[in-house]
Design a protein around this nucleic acid. Sequence first.
DNA 1: CTATGCTATGACCACATTGGTCAATTTAAT
DNA 2: ATTAAATTGACCAATGTGGTCATAGCATAG
Lengths: 205, 205
Amino acid sequence: MKLEPEKRDRIINSAINEFAKYPYNSASTNNIVKNAGISKGLLFHYFGSKRELYEYLSKFVIKKLFNEVNETLNWEQSDIFERLKEIAMAKLRLSQTYPLLFEFVISMFKEQGGPADFNAVVEIYQKQGINIKELFAKFYSYNIDYSLFKDQKNIGAMVDIIRWTIEKFGEEKSLVLIKEEESIDFTKMIAMMDEYIDVLRKAFY
Amino acid sequence: MKLEPEKRDRIINSAINEFAKYPYNSASTNNIVKNAGISKGLLFHYFGSKRELYEYLSKFVIKKLFNEVNETLNWEQSDIFERLKEIAMAKLRLSQTYPLLFEFVISMFKEQGGPADFNAVVEIYQKQGINIKELFAKFYSYNIDYSLFKDQKNIGAMVDIIRWTIEKFGEEKSLVLIKEEESIDFTKMIAMMDEYIDVLRKAFY
DNA sequence: CTATGCTATGACCACATTGGTCAATTTAAT
DNA sequence: ATTAAATTGACCAATGTGGTCATAGCATAG
């Protein structure tokens, strides 16, 4: 894959966008080349077929996700609030370069059993010694100090609530920002998120 | 519209399902008639065209939503937790008869400006004296006693967190249940939801 | 200057699907 | 028996599909 990274990212983003928006069968290679600003032939020259393009994207996206989170996460962090904030920030950072990356990942889950199977990708990483599901569980638990919670009986529920709050925050705010078609103001976003997290910290610790 | 309600609901459910899954242009009338178990001609006999079918569905779905919530909601309720729980239950009840009703409503929002404009529907209700956006705001505020909150400074954030928790709870649990293809066990669901709500109540009141 | 090899194009293909029609048939009511 | 409504599915032109390929541009090397 020797094509210039800039053009490669243009193609990848266009493809991610299309597959995020439409189910595999409805996603159109014509749209992908149009939005990428390249010719039909070029796409098939580099990727062979629609199926191969999708498989390339699956792997690409998981790798990006894995690397970004894994490299920037501070594993010494014992405060669950800070840990979850770090994860949310990693997600945000990624969607600067690949705006619909997460929508695409979610759509991959929906394709399970369909023509483009997500489990296949999970298995590929399994063979490389990476258990994706275990890894994601580790994000929320490794080195975390749960003794800080006031109420020791409902820790599971509390962690869910914190996670959900951060996720919903990202969804609603990014939705608003996409509509206004501005670029995301990071510092403002962090400040707003901190407000919510402080409320939860005061309530739970 | 004189056709038997049973057949009508079969058609409506099939159409909701298709439009919830695919964007307006990709949604197929062929699929709709196939899944509804009727002929192509019948659909167009009753609904005229794809566009008119979509418009009928838009109005139908908003009306159902409005009626269900409006009729079952206890406006005397001053506890925000109980109010939000009632709303969540109304949603759940509706999705017994029309499983993908909410996915369809969400997809309507995404079609804004597209070939099937949601704002048009909002305006129709506006002319009938029903302001949908105001109404939804009223759900979360009418007659609610906010003095019960411990921290009086961040009430807005707290209400968001409560709302998000209930919403995410519904999303994640219903996802699990859909995969297991069981029918929803209401009493179990309520019990689980109460657990989360109690945690929040203890933390915020 | 030619030759080689990579990047890139877009017209073109056979085929599938689209929203919609309509003449014909079944069903129900009088 | 007659009429009217409900229902069918073969059919249509139009559009879109994933994929191909002969051709062209362009750079580097001899």
